[in-house]
Nucleic acid binder design. Sequence first.
RNA 1: CGAGUAAAUUGAAUAGUCGCUGGUAUACUCUUGAAAAGGAGUUACGAGAGGAAAGUCCGGGCUCCACAGAGCAAUGAUGCUAGAUAACGUCUAGUGAGGGUAACCUUAAGGAAAGUGCAACAGAAAAUAACCGCCUCUCUAAUGAGGUAAGGGUGAAAAGGCGAGGUAAGAGCUCACCGCUGUUAUAGUGAUAUGACAGGCUGUGUAAACCCCAUCUGGAGCAACACCUUUAUUUAAGAAGAAAAUGUACCUGCUCGGUACCUUUAAUAAAUAUUGCGUGGCUUGAAAUAUAUAGUGAUAUAUAUUCUAGAUAAAUGACUAUUUUAAAAGACAGAACCCGGCUUACAGAUUUACUCAUAAA
RNA 2: GGCCCGUUGGUCAAGCGGUUAAGACAUCGCCCUUUCACGGCGGAGACAUGGGUUCGAUUCCCGUACGGGUCA
Length: 114
Amino acid sequence: MLKKNFEFRKVLSKGKYYSGDNIEVFILKNNKSLNFIGLAISTKTGKAYIRNKIKRLIRENYKNLEKNLKDGYNIVFLWKKNKSTENAKYSTIEKDMKKIFDKANIIQENKEKI
RNA sequence: CGAGUAAAUUGAAUAGUCGCUGGUAUACUCUUGAAAAGGAGUUACGAGAGGAAAGUCCGGGCUCCACAGAGCAAUGAUGCUAGAUAACGUCUAGUGAGGGUAACCUUAAGGAAAGUGCAACAGAAAAUAACCGCCUCUCUAAUGAGGUAAGGGUGAAAAGGCGAGGUAAGAGCUCACCGCUGUUAUAGUGAUAUGACAGGCUGUGUAAACCCCAUCUGGAGCAACACCUUUAUUUAAGAAGAAAAUGUACCUGCUCGGUACCUUUAAUAAAUAUUGCGUGGCUUGAAAUAUAUAGUGAUAUAUAUUCUAGAUAAAUGACUAUUUUAAAAGACAGAACCCGGCUUACAGAUUUACUCAUAAA
RNA sequence: GGCCCGUUGGUCAAGCGGUUAAGACAUCGCCCUUUCACGGCGGAGACAUGGGUUCGAUUCCCGUACGGGUCA
């Protein structure tokens, strides 16, 4: 997990930007052997109950897709401000994340075979 | 059956797969260490958000502010009575006032005769009332000098109300009824209620304007505070010397009261600020559940049983199946030191007591 | 998480118990000019929201919503 404020700034300023229908993603290379995730959802999207729900859904999706990803990246997920919170469902987020990881060429298809 | 009032409860359940955060362990593996003990991971067991966790509007615990003390002032809060409570601006039971056909609901409800201020426009006049009108005297008349609050219209508010007597015209000037004020008797712990007697009753409204009276009130807040650690700055306990005051600084605006004060030296300590995926504070508590007793009730007492989140970029989720449902798991919504209340948001369901209306007997 | 402030036309803002709620920029119309700008005249447009006190509330009191500041 990313925790500190300067870590987020590095990723947001230097990382590459990808956008789905509801989610925005920033990705940076990291020289370590693990992936680090950061979640940031502003208070303007909703109240605390809704923000917690979105965080959980993103984390669940990431767990299911984590096996297929390459190692050594910092990834930051954001929620788009204009989108209504009714779209926050498991299936819609899954589509966005798959699209984005395809574009970014992070997916490692041969991992399971090896 | 319909319309409604009050109080209380609930806030989907079960199974499977994957995954998250603490706790426990004579468990297993690795590791630091002389040892005691500690750290990381795995496994097993068991636990894991609300009625409002929310707003931060009140009250308390707890911590610090010198040892947090006394008095006065100021500021602020409360304001019918009696009680409950650790405390409260909360709650309970009553009183008065207002609303509703009723069940029932609302109510910051002391003092305007201690003083000050304000009352726009309209109106003669907004608190020392004479514009029109009515009446008397002077006079041909106008005018002038007086008396008068019954009538007029203005306004949110107009000088106790209505009737009779009385009068030049009028007037609590007198009287009956009502209202008001005071005294007193009875009932009640009390607010107050009921009755009797007396006073003719000049003195509007506003205190959620200043103010007066009564009661209470030191300040800051777990990002408090304590400890460890990184870095920097400043200071001086002890020793020696100097100085000693109706002084200076701080604690609190003032008084009392309290603490400190200047110079030199070396080494250590302390203070302040700062660094940290730091540690504690952190969850056993005015605790929860059940029963009994006392009380109209808030609540109190006793007994038994239970241990029930403790995170820090912040844990409860996702998927599948079944049940309830006409169908869809759906409303409001996420603990952050902890309690007692208040306020606000809320789909659906259930229970109890009561009222009104309609119909029938 | 705690503690504090604020909300008046599209924007910046005065007012603070009373009569039509000042003013500036912007906007609309007319005039001026060959035209535009500048200038002149006129118009439209607001007290965040729900209750209470008061004869009367933008103002006083209480609640709610929204916005902002500060503390490691």
